[in-house]
């Protein structure tokens, strides 16, 4: 059985799992966005910085999908579909540009997993994934929101990387481990070799 070597082709179930992650996180962002608005008002004129502070939340989907399905391109597709859910179903004000954001975030988050050839899922890889995702998308956001030339550019970068590492990396890992504990992932993960199964 091809249990341990990742196969490139995504099954319909893989796609549905990715969409479910996109939908649930899309919905949860929407629920927690109230908290975000409160935070931006609290921060007054620097409210704009909360975007950097919370970027990690938007990075969660890719590492979680990767750690569940363990196949190439899953992270990129997961971020793209999550963006599609927000644009098409939730009517996000960022509009279709979010698709580009998702693509870049996905690529960033996936690079560290790809470097391990989708074999290692330890804390270090998650941490690197969060840093990479947050770092890569920083350049795109800087263009999008005209950050270049602002005095607080280094502060923004620091906050964004920190958030990426903590929320988009370590939190993602915590969620995956908790999911493993519930047993929902049993049929989604590559199977144990079939000939090892014994009937009671």
């Amino acid at each position: 059985m091809a249990a341990h070597t990742p196969t490139a082709r995504l099954t319909l179930r893989d796609i549905v799992v990715i969409v479910v992650l996109g939908v649930v996180f899309g919905f949860l962002y929407w629920v927690f966005v109230q908290a975000w608005t409160a935070l931006s008002i609290l921060m007054g004129p620097l409210g704009d910085l909360t975007g950097n502070l919370l970027i990690g939340c938007w990075l969660l989907v890719a590492p979680i999908a990767l750690a569940i399905l363990r196949k190439p391109f899953v992270g990129v597709i997961a971020e793209l579909l999550a963006a599609a859910v927000e644009v098409v179903f939730l009517g996000s004000p960022a509009g279709p540009l979010l698709l580009i954001t998702g693509l870049i975030q996905g690529i960033g988050s996936e690079i560290p997993f790809a470097l391990t050839r989708y074999r290692r899922y330890g804390a270090a890889v998650f941490l690197a994934s969060g840093l990479c995702g947050a770092g890569l998308v920083f350049f795109w956001s800087a263009v999008r929101f005209g950050w270049l030339g602002q005095d607080i550019l280094p502060l923004r970068l620091t906050l964004q990387l920190l958030s990426g590492a903590l929320l988009g990396g370590l939190l993602a890992r915590g969620i995956v481990r908790a999911l493993e504990g519930t047993g929902v992932l049993a049929n989604l993960r590559p199977a144990v070799a079939a000939d090892e199964l014994v009937r009671r």
């Binding site: 549905v16 799992v17 649930v24």
Partner: peptide
């Protein structure tokens, strides 16, 4: 609560994928 929502949704996702495929979707 958010975690419970995620777990429940993944479970329905499994059934959903089966339902879609049993409608012949390829």
């Amino acid at each position: 609560c958010a975690f419970a929502l995620l777990v429940g949704s993944l479970r329905s996702g499994e059934r959903l994928a089966f339902a879609l495929e049993s409608r012949g979707l390829t």
